[in-house]
Nucleic acid binder design. Sequence first.
DNA 1: GATGAATGAGCGTTCATTCAT
DNA 2: AATGAATGAACGCTCATTCAT
Lengths: 204, 204, 204, 204
Amino acid sequence: MPKSTFYNLPANKKDRVIEAAIDEFAAFTYYKASITRIVEKADIAKGSFYQYFEDKKDLYNYIIALIAEEKLEYLGEVINNMDSYEFFQLLRELYSSGIKFARANPKLQAIGNKLYSNIDSPIFKEVIDSQKVKSIEFFQMLLKKGIERGEVDENINIELVSHMLTILNISLGELIYEDGQINMDDMKIIEGMLYVLENGLRSS
Amino acid sequence: MPKSTFYNLPANKKDRVIEAAIDEFAAFTYYKASITRIVEKADIAKGSFYQYFEDKKDLYNYIIALIAEEKLEYLGEVINNMDSYEFFQLLRELYSSGIKFARANPKLQAIGNKLYSNIDSPIFKEVIDSQKVKSIEFFQMLLKKGIERGEVDENINIELVSHMLTILNISLGELIYEDGQINMDDMKIIEGMLYVLENGLRSS
Amino acid sequence: MPKSTFYNLPANKKDRVIEAAIDEFAAFTYYKASITRIVEKADIAKGSFYQYFEDKKDLYNYIIALIAEEKLEYLGEVINNMDSYEFFQLLRELYSSGIKFARANPKLQAIGNKLYSNIDSPIFKEVIDSQKVKSIEFFQMLLKKGIERGEVDENINIELVSHMLTILNISLGELIYEDGQINMDDMKIIEGMLYVLENGLRSS
Amino acid sequence: MPKSTFYNLPANKKDRVIEAAIDEFAAFTYYKASITRIVEKADIAKGSFYQYFEDKKDLYNYIIALIAEEKLEYLGEVINNMDSYEFFQLLRELYSSGIKFARANPKLQAIGNKLYSNIDSPIFKEVIDSQKVKSIEFFQMLLKKGIERGEVDENINIELVSHMLTILNISLGELIYEDGQINMDDMKIIEGMLYVLENGLRSS
DNA sequence: GATGAATGAGCGTTCATTCAT
DNA sequence: AATGAATGAACGCTCATTCAT
């Protein structure tokens, strides 16, 4: 967690640090990212950095949390009105929000895509897994509701399918992220995926 | 490519080098992996290493090739008899072989899981993408055959579904790779996934 | 160019670095000169060195520039009053200043003598050649003036003679540089050389 | 000195070693020259090299001696008939032979030009200086004879002028060696230099 | 005598972090 | 709180030389 000194910073300087960090982590994986470049870009002293953050990891975790927060804002509306959506419609909205987020925040998406690069240290694994676990649990909950409502096939393996939905969700971000990966407009991607999932999961 | 000196090495020493390298690349991403640790573990001189390999990248590529080779042995049988399987049966076999490989070679699987970490450098991106592309093209081919035979729903978006199948395939390796990810026996995982995919993809 | 951090260093430390570098480059050619020895001698951390200089070449160029500067101070007076000297008197002064510099700065002279060692790398070739070319052009200019004034024989091959004067000038530094080369006092050396050149070049 | 094993080598292999060494020392200074490259080029085993030569220096000295020998062959004719030449005619012949040698053996000349790069170690200084000293002593002898015969001005400083003649002789090799140095045909260079020297040295 | 693998000290360079001011 | 110089362990890599066969 950043130190109190960081939160007390004038907005301008604080933002410079955040922007520099985002640029750096979007361009390099954690280990290749350089504090030196970040402080240069943010135009703060090297020593100051260590008065704001414990260390490199501290900054990284802070930025990851920022991304999660930002992403939640995209999903927030959907999630808040969760119960008014039919299961597959909700899935469509969630995936769609994810793509919108990636389109609107390509750098943040780039950092997200690099997440798995940093599984080296157990500490990161924890951070990352907890993210994934949250997503999986969320889908499990949705699936259960969907089954209760008779929308989702009750014969599916809930635990596994929640994994699948999570992975496919994550893959969407990567899919659209860079050149050549796939050449389709966003709606086609979502509809194509939903077509399979709906056939695969809907109760008959 | 390793130099001829490496191939001429006594099996014992050669194996020590390979094992040390696998351990290292399983524990660290490419950039964090340390030649120093590898030679220490393998108990060879630093200079010797550079008599065997051009450089770090040379070793890494060699290990990746080793993994690919090893993995092919698991898939080989299935692929060779590709035409005698029905589409979903083939999918089942492929996923099953992937899991068997990961179970039998957890370290190699770990290295594979880290592959995406190295997308930073353009050189690696090329290697990795080509891998993925091959897999995607393979699934496209399978899907087309499946549609021709009337086994697979002709309304699916082939390009997208081949992506999905690739991603799910890769995720299987990660899924079972370490503690806590998922707690099921392999058959249950495969059947759970196939149940959804078969419902989602089979022609009605 | 050294980084600003170097120029901001306390004089004491800065001088230690310079002295260590001069000692090293006086004792070894560029490629054999060792940063490790330099930082040990200067008693600074290896990392500090790279806060002061971009790399080894940066330091080397800085030292070369220092020598050029130092040498110019010896020649400056003469060059500034160029037009008030007769050609051969000017030549005498130039050679004399060169010898004085070498006597006063034997280590810098030693580095200068090694300059030609580094012609291997194109980068150095450029630096070194430009030095020589400057000297040659300077002598060409002097010769032309001398001919105009009727002091110098108009039948000489200007291009070639400017080469000769440059080479003899450089050789003076080497001549007196170390033990055994020649055992004469400086005036005798200059007068001996001038005697020949004056007879050889003066218009009759 | 090379070991007897080297001299006992079949001519073919011996020549391959010599040629590879000449190529290497022509392309790189002593310290940058690589034994590894030499043995590769000569197609002999690394270990064999050390059965032929004590070390790198041993080989280098051998090659230098070879060059001296080769060069002497060019001068030999002139030197043998020394007494039948007038002083300045002899000088002309000597310089002319030097240029011919350089033109005929550009690689050997390149090695010669690099000689001064290797003054680092006292051992080399000795080797090189002894070469120079020989040349200087030779010119001293010539000058004395020239004075006796009344061809050379008796007022010159013999010791110094012998240095000058040596340096100018060496410089001739460098002068013609590479692009851009000077753009004249060989006779023009020699005549231009001799014109000055003759005027400068001839007894009046 | 021939081989070529083995050696290890040494190289220049990087970087997150600490510390004195 | 801010600064930025200082640190030193670690990095990948090179190379002449040795040594076992």
